[in-house]
């Protein structure tokens, strides 16, 4: 490990890398536009709701599909290094490979968290304007806060999961396919199968979630979903870091 360079410097460098390629901005604009417009329409068609958290839920619908763009962003942040040969320069500059991956994860995670937080607040705003709830929809309502926080947490973890899978597979197409497969494709397939085994597997998969609801998937509690997603992140990241440390580039 290169102790001489403060970790902050590596993070700043990774932020420069992320912001200086176009794909980051395409994903960012796409994510903001998709989630915000879907949120606005979701709120507009929900004229009234019995509780504030239910009202906010309909405004958060866009987060489900929006996470596809989070996956693309997270995967590309690492696979573009391998795809272009940039990784040679990166690992020569920062030979501590786990350190490099950690800095990258911090940057990708923080960027996803920031965008998602802005979007969550926007969705709350849309709901509070367009959906009638007795007593209004205060941002400080615990149910509302939980729904919004859950979106931010899921999107952030999804970004880091994509990054981890990208590190393991080192291929943009492979990693995007794997991430979207386990998050978007398999959960509805397993839900349709509706056998006990399929349900068991479905509960172990990280599925996109919109508030308390899983997106076209077998329902689980949000606590369960967060733990499963967190475990996937931890495993893919650890395997990715171990492979990165061992492999020749």
């Amino acid at each position: 490990m290169s102790r001489g360079v403060p970790f902050r410097s590596v993070v700043v460098s990774e932020w420069t890398k992320l912001r200086s390629v176009r794909s980051t901005w395409w994903c960012t604009v796409g994510y903001l536009a998709l989630v915000a417009t879907t949120g606005w329409f979701g709120a507009a068609i929900t004229q009234s709701a019995p509780r504030p958290d239910i009202a906010v839920s309909s405004a958060l619908t866009g987060f489900g599909l929006g996470q596809v763009l989070v996956v693309v962003l997270g995967v590309l942040a690492v696979t573009s290094e391998f795809g272009t040969g940039m990784v040679l320069a990166s690992l020569t500059a920062v030979p501590g490979r786990a350190r490099l991956l950690l800095a990258k994860s911090v940057v990708v995670g923080a960027w996803c968290a920031l965008l998602s937080a802005v979007l969550a607040v926007f969705c709350w705003f849309a709901a509070s304007r367009l959906t009638a709830v007795e007593g209004g929809i205060p941002l400080t309502d615990p149910g509302v806060l939980r729904q919004l926080g859950l979106q931010v947490a899921c999107a952030t973890l999804t970004g880091v999961l994509a990054l981890g899978l990208g590190t393991v597979l080192r291929s943009s197409a492979g990693a995007m396919g794997a991430a979207l497969g386990v998050m978007l494709l398999l959960p509805p397939v397993l839900a349709i199968l509706a056998s006990d085994q399929a349900e068991w597997v479905a509960r172990a998969l990280p599925a996109f979630r919109v508030g308390d609801e899983a997106f076209f998937a077998v329902q689980t509690s949000w606590q369960h979903a967060l733990v499963v997603l967190g475990a996937w992140v931890a495993v893919s990241w650890t395997v990715g870091a171990a492979l990165l440390a061992r492999r020749d580039v």
């Binding site: 360079v5 460098s13 200086s20 390629v21 272009t84 040969g85 940039m86 320069a89 920062v94």
Partner: peptide
């Protein structure tokens, strides 16, 4: 200098060098 392709083609020369400089403070 290992490989002239060791860079992201979408990045500017300045951004490429800046990221490397920052990584070593």
């Amino acid at each position: 200098l290992l490989d002239p392709r060791a860079r992201h083609p979408g990045r500017t020369a300045h951004a490429h060098l800046l990221a490397l400089a920052q990584s070593n403070a």
